[in-house]
Design a protein around this nucleic acid. Structure first.
Lengths: 243, 243
DNA sequence: CGGCGGTTTGATGTGACTCAAAAAGAGTGG
DNA sequence: CCACTCTTTTTGAGTCACATCAAACCGCCG
């Protein structure tokens, strides 16, 4: 599977593209770029000209308060087109940064917009991507707004395991999650210290095991039960078929 | 301004539509419906066939935990097309309910999708709407994740005042916000009791005044300062112009 | 083997929760 | 216009989850 076809494969797994749309997509001028750990791909306030597709690695989108407090609003794994939104919105309202060495493929906004204008299937695919994004944000709002620390963490871990499995990156049970505890804390809206203690309590109850950056979900059902996790908000069934 | 043209006006305020697209939009079969206070327009898990446009009133989108805890993930005011997403996603992952007597206009998914397929400007407008939605969700995630109770409330009030002004519903200072304190609490992720006390503290400092359901923002700048509010995440400048 | 992020622990403070009940409105019918 | 009811707001008291600050520990890498 070459670089250029990974995102295409994702799009096509949901709804077939016409041969012409497919060809046009492959014609987009792309650029591969590599970033080290903890580098900003996009900074808050930037005007961007490209959307980025995650080839390998892991990135997060985040927002920062003047106080310095940071909130991570999403994680993205290989196969995700991050920040498709920036194609239509000029100013980045959030940053994007890496958590491990990461390779991305840049797609020019111009090209993506032209493609969307020319091929309705592609426009629909982009729209759907944005929809799923929004849905996950809603779930995160619920997560930080109405769950306890342990529940939030459990929910996040299940979501990541589920998404990685859907992307063919793991078996759904064991995953490499190269995110520091401080960053996990920023994602679930608690302090790093409390995150650490909550993690320990999950481990103590045998819910999860961790080896370095590897996390093993030991009791999926109990974790799903206690954190009220279901995958429906990620709409794994894909978009509604053509009208 | 008739019923059918309100949403159109919003779309066109951002980017012009071709006469044909305009006409096709006006040809959509719509239905006006009215709901009393605290009625579900959509229930979690529903399969919907229509998106709804808010004509008058106020609705929220919410998610519920098995424990009964509820999280309100967004409010919608007249002029908002709610749940455009449901056009592409079969199963509602959240509910929609009214907070006051509300009149909506229903647009059939079928028709919206056909329109989007036929007219790229419309597809782009829908996509942009979804983008803004997603952006507001991100801000809410930050809000409940990293701000104190007072800051969350201040931020929410400013957002609502700003959106109402943008929609031409008020002067940006004084607004009718028919949301009970219990519901506000569900929106900012705190308990109703604590919300009440935090509100009182905002009043005590002269930040806001309230008369029944009317809220007056007395010190916009201070509130914006303390809650780190800016309107950039709502992207009032509209979408990037045609590529 | 020293340096350095990252994790873990300890101690202490407080913002926010819960439960419970009173007070104040808002809507309804006589 | 008042009595009645239901909802919403407000108050009080006790408790707990989570925050903060600070220091120790650990694993990794050059």
């Amino acid at each position: 599977m070459t670089t250029e076809t990974l995102y295409l494969r994702k799009l096509e797994s949901r709804a077939p593209l016409s041969p012409r749309a497919r060809a046009a997509f492959l014609d987009l001028p792309t650029r591969e770029r590599t970033f080290e750990t903890y580098r900003d791909i996009v900074r808050e306030g930037d005007r961007t000209t490209h959307s980025c597709f995650i080839q390998t690695g892991l990135v997060s989108r985040y927002k920062t308060l003047r106080s310095g407090a940071r909130s991570i609003v999403s994680f993205h794994i290989p196969g995700d087109m991050v920040d498709l939104q920036s194609a239509l919105v000029l100013i980045a309202d959030h940053g994007i940064r890496t958590h491990v060495p990461t390779t991305i493929v840049e797609y020019p906004h111009e090209g993506l917009l032209q493609l969307a204008a020319a091929y309705p299937e592609i426009a629909r695919a982009f729209w759907f991507d944005t929809l799923i994004d929004a849905s996950i944000f809603r779930e995160w709002t619920l997560n930080v707004g109405r769950r306890t620390a342990r529940e939030r963490i459990a929910h996040l871990l299940l979501e990541m395991a589920f998404r990685m499995k859907a992307a063919g990156l793991n078996d759904g049970i064991t995953m490499v999650l190269p995110i520091s505890q401080a960053d996990l804390a920023d994602a679930v809206g608690i302090s790093a210290v409390h995150l650490n203690r909550s993690l320990q309590s999950l481990r103590a109850e045998g819910m999860i095991r961790t080896y370095g950056k590897t996390v093993v979900i030991e009791k999926w059902d109990e974790m799903a039960e206690m954190s009220d996790f279901t995958s429906v908000y990620m709409h794994p069934e894909g978009p509604r078929m053509a009208a």
